[in-house]
Amino acid sequence: MDQGADGPLSGRPNIGGIRETFAPWADPAAAPLVRFDGVSKAFGDTRAVNDVSLSIYEREFFALLGPSGCGKTTLMRLLAGFEQPDAGRVMLGGRDIAADPPHQRPVHMMFQSYALFPHLSVAQNIAFGLKRQGVAKAETAARVEEMLALVRLEGLGRRRPDQLSGGQRQRVALARALAPRPKILLLDEPMAALDKKLREETRFELMNLQQALGLTFMIVTHDQDEAMVVADRIAVMREGRIVQVGRPAEVYEAPADRYVAGFIGDVNLFEGRVATSEGGRVRLLSEDGPIEAEGAGPVGETAWVAVRPEKVAVHSEPQLGDNVLAGTILDYGYLGDWTTYLVEIAPGRTIRAARANATRTVARPLGCGDAVWLSFEPASAVVLTR
Rank of each mutant, 00 (worst) to 15 (best):
L325S: 13
I345C: 12
V90M: 01
A354W: 00
D331E: 14
T21W: 00
D100E: 15
R77F: 05
P101H: 06
Q124F: 00
Q211S: 14
A30C: 05
E310H: 06
A235T: 04
S113T: 12
E317L: 14
I18M: 08
A235S: 06
G66F: 02
P161H: 14
R199I: 14
R152V: 13
F22L: 12
Y334P: 07
P290G: 13
L215M: 13
L79T: 05
F263A: 11
R283W: 04
F82A: 05
T202N: 04
G167E: 14
T140F: 00
G327K: 08
R132D: 00
H108D: 03
F117D: 01
V39T: 03
Y334D: 06
G348P: 07
A306K: 01
N208W: 01
M91P: 15
I291K: 06
Q224I: 10
N125W: 05
G157V: 11
E226Y: 04
V383E: 08
T359A: 12
G369M: 04
D188F: 04
G336Y: 07
P102F: 07
L284N: 11
A379G: 03
A193S: 14
R47K: 14
G17Y: 00
L64W: 07
V312N: 01
Y114D: 05
T276I: 02
N14H: 04
A306H: 12
V343M: 10
F111H: 04
T46K: 14
I329Q: 14
A363T: 13
D188R: 03
V260T: 10
A177D: 01
K196W: 01
G69A: 11
L178H: 05
R308Q: 13
Q84A: 11
V305Q: 09
T302D: 13
L153C: 07
K137I: 03
P85F: 10
R283T: 15
L335H: 07
D2V: 05
L366G: 06
I56V: 15
T74N: 03
D37C: 05
T221S: 08
T276R: 07
G81R: 14
